[in-house]
Nucleic acid binder design. Structure first.
Length: 303
RNA sequence: GGGGAGAUACCAAAGUGGCCAACUGGGGCAGACUGUAAAUCUGCUGGCGAAUGCCUUCGUAGGUUCGAAUCCUGCUCUCCCCA
């Protein structure tokens, strides 16, 4: 019988967690989390990790398995999930993956090109160059090292250019030469289910969830992570705003307000990311019966 | 009752005769994005249009002027001070 990976995705706050538990029970499945910030053990409240109760009900993978000091990436996630899946499929025919990190989900579904790891010294070099010469310095370097990519990248986006330059440096050949962009074939069927709500509904939920996080002690959680603020994991909604508050730059109320706004913006970006993916079948989170029916149909088709 | 200040687009706030469909900020909308992705970046934000453009706006009703968000008058409302 065909192995099935159900991918349950949707913007932050839409209500993925609750449904994922229901679906996992219904289809006797375990859950793979595809939320790039729920990976970190120190970040529990601000990332809306499933409750203890939910975690004991259903076996979850990739939840709080890293420290904020660890390096991780979409590519590592692809590797780890693809390595884990055969083991899960040996006992379950259906596995559920749920989360909101579009790039990580794509990495699992379609694969991501093999690109060498960046030499930290190279990264440092270009960070310095950016600081000293600004974005035009980066552009000039890219024009020389990878003229092809130069015509394609967003020349306003320093991170994009730096990334390409780092690769050029460490690999000794153009970044663009690594971009094969070939979809990787998987030996399991993927069913993508998107959860959506009206914008006002979603924003209301996001806002009140932030208030809830604050009540649960987000401030304390953030304060305990202040020393790690430079780690990438902490460059996240819910933490960076509190760091600003700790710095005395903004009031606590302002920080909370910004967390809400930035969460809304994040949700918007997620929606944009998935907008072009025609494989996703969209449902309202209250439509569990329809979702189950759709999964049933798709599973039959896949047989 | 007397005196003063003000009413600008979703909100805040510039503009004080033509360069104004109106600075800027917020909020919002739309988009890009292959290893930092909860990141990073871009555009739009009176209506219609792909666009040159056309139409309706700066409390409200008039007036002055070739021309008004900007000047004058009446009215309505808000705020502050004195009583």
């Amino acid at each position: 019988m065909n192995k099935i990976l159900i991918v349950l995705l949707g913007p932050t706050g839409v209500g993925k967690t609750d449904i994922s538990i229901d679906l996992a029970i219904r289809f006797n499945s375990e859950i793979i989390s595809a939320d790039s910030r729920q990976f970190f053990i120190e970040m529990r409240i601000g990332t809306a990790v499933p409750s203890i109760d939910q975690l004991t009900k259903i076996k979850h993978h990739f939840i709080r398995f890293l420290s904020v000091e660890d390096y991780y990436s979409a590519s590592l996630f692809e590797r780890d999930v693809i390595e884990l899946l055969p083991r899960l499929f040996s006992k379950k025919s259906i596995v559920l993956m749920t989360g909101g990190s579009g790039m990580y989900i794509d990495a699992v579904c379609n694969g991501i090109d093999d690109i060498p790891d960046v030499d930290p010294a190279a990264r440092e070099r270009y960070i310095t160059r950016y600081r000293e010469e600004g974005i035009s310095g980066l552009r000039e370097a890219l024009k020389i090292l990878d003229p092809e990519h130069y015509t394609k990248v967003d020349l306003n986006n320093p991170k994009r250019i730096m990334r390409a330059l780092e690769i050029c440096d460490t690999a000794g050949r153009p970044y663009s030469s690594f971009l094969i962009k070939k979809k990787r074939e998987r030996d399991f069927t993927i069913i993508k289910i998107g959860l959506e709500r009206t914008r006002s509904e979603l924003y209301y939920r996001i806002n009140s969830r932030v208030d809830m996080m604050v009540e649960m002690g987000l401030e304390e959680e953030a304060r305990n992570l202040l020393n790690f603020r430079n780690m990438n994991a902490l460059n996240s909604v819910g933490y960076r705003e509190f760091f600003e508050f700790f710095d005395g730059k903004i009031s606590k109320d302002k920080a909370i307000e910004l967390i809400k706004r930035n969460s809304r913006r994040y949700a918007k970006r997620q929606i944009t990311w998935w907008g072009k993916d025609k494989e996703i079948k969209w449902f309202h989170p209250d439509s569990a019966p329809e979702i189950i029916e759709y999964i049933g149909e798709s599973v039959n088709k896949a047989k």
